Amino acid sequence: MAASDFKTWMGDVQAQMESALSIFLPASTQLPERLHDAMRYSVLDGGKRVRPLLTFAAGHLVNAPAERLQAAAAAVEMIHAYSLVHDDMPAMDNDVLRRGKPTVHVAFGEATALLAGDALQAAAFDVLSERQLADSPADQLKMVHLLARAAGSLGMCGGQGIDLYSVGQALTLPELERMHILKTGALIRAAVLLGSYCGQPLSEAERHGLDHFAKCIGLAFQVVDDILDCEADSATLGKTAGKDAANNKPTYVALLGMKGAKDKAAELKQAAFDALLPFGERAQYLHALAGYIVDRKY
């Protein structure tokens, strides 16, 4: 796929999602206005929309309608946004910059930030369950279960808990990978699989291959995040750079060194590419996204 074609597709999906999220989120004029302002502030006008892009790319694989993909991707992005709001708060990472602007608790206060995160989590399941997104009710129920599992203590929240409890500790590579399979990888995996349920059914072998792709690229995303935290500045990242090292958190760079971390990212990218081989040209956007995720500079 030509780089220009991928860039055009990516811009189109990002524009679709900005519009869809604006519609799915409560209006700023709706009571309670300040809470809804905070929710919209945390979600709109920022971020690469990697998870929605993955949902759409997986949807392309199964010829899914755009309207279904918009809702599934919005649900994932709301969960992601809520996690960032809570992670940035003083009780956790205590950060003041996100997506190039003040974090939600800085802009709206801690109490409103806490409520905004809670409300975004609920809104995600509202969007996911309000309309038909899969051909069968059983598949739609699987979608709700997938996102719930990915967001909870056996997924993203569990990984964040391990991260908090591991500050100052020297984790082994399997322990570090397990933490990030949950903290970062679970929601990325959900983004891919939700997209795959929005269209034509996949065989068990195909779904297994897609799941393996999602796991590889989810880990790769975190490895690259660790690299960029060391190599990029705050203006480029849109968030505070160097915080992991400053807070003595376990990272791939700390464990493997910079070269080892970059080698690990390249290895995971190749494994993701290999998992897509049986899908041929249908996986062109997933293939391009895997390259984008690993080769990105912010």
Results as ranks from 00 to 15, higher is better:
residue 293 I to V: 14
residue 200 Q to S: 12
residue 252 Y to C: 12
residue 40 R to G: 01
residue 89 M to W: 02
residue 82 Y to I: 00
residue 283 A to S: 15
residue 282 R to C: 01
residue 186 A to M: 01
residue 169 Q to A: 12
residue 140 Q to G: 07
residue 84 L to C: 05
residue 273 F to N: 11
residue 170 A to L: 10
residue 191 A to Q: 08
residue 117 G to N: 05
residue 161 G to R: 13
residue 120 L to E: 12
residue 158 G to P: 10
residue 225 D to Q: 07
residue 294 V to F: 05
residue 250 P to S: 10
residue 199 G to P: 07
residue 133 L to G: 11
residue 246 A to W: 09
residue 294 V to T: 02
residue 141 L to E: 06
residue 293 I to C: 08
residue 233 D to W: 14
residue 283 A to F: 05
residue 147 L to P: 08
residue 197 Y to F: 15
residue 196 S to T: 05
residue 75 A to W: 01
residue 38 A to R: 03
residue 298 Y to V: 14
residue 160 Q to N: 07
residue 287 H to E: 07
residue 39 M to I: 01
residue 108 F to V: 08
residue 207 R to A: 02
residue 230 C to H: 13
residue 61 L to N: 10
residue 82 Y to F: 11
residue 151 A to I: 04
residue 289 L to W: 02
residue 109 G to N: 07
residue 115 L to N: 00
residue 295 D to I: 02
residue 178 R to M: 00
residue 199 G to M: 03
residue 135 D to A: 11
residue 78 M to R: 09
residue 265 A to F: 06
residue 138 A to R: 11
residue 55 T to I: 06
residue 229 D to P: 10
residue 212 H to D: 11
residue 200 Q to H: 09
residue 94 N to I: 02
residue 100 G to T: 13
residue 200 Q to L: 13
residue 204 E to P: 03
residue 148 A to D: 00
residue 70 Q to P: 10
residue 191 A to H: 03
residue 171 L to T: 03
residue 121 Q to H: 09
residue 279 F to R: 04
residue 122 A to F: 13
residue 82 Y to Q: 04
residue 207 R to F: 08
residue 290 A to D: 07
residue 173 L to F: 12
residue 161 G to Q: 09
residue 97 L to G: 05
residue 23 I to T: 14
residue 74 A to F: 07
residue 272 A to N: 04
residue 41 Y to Q: 07
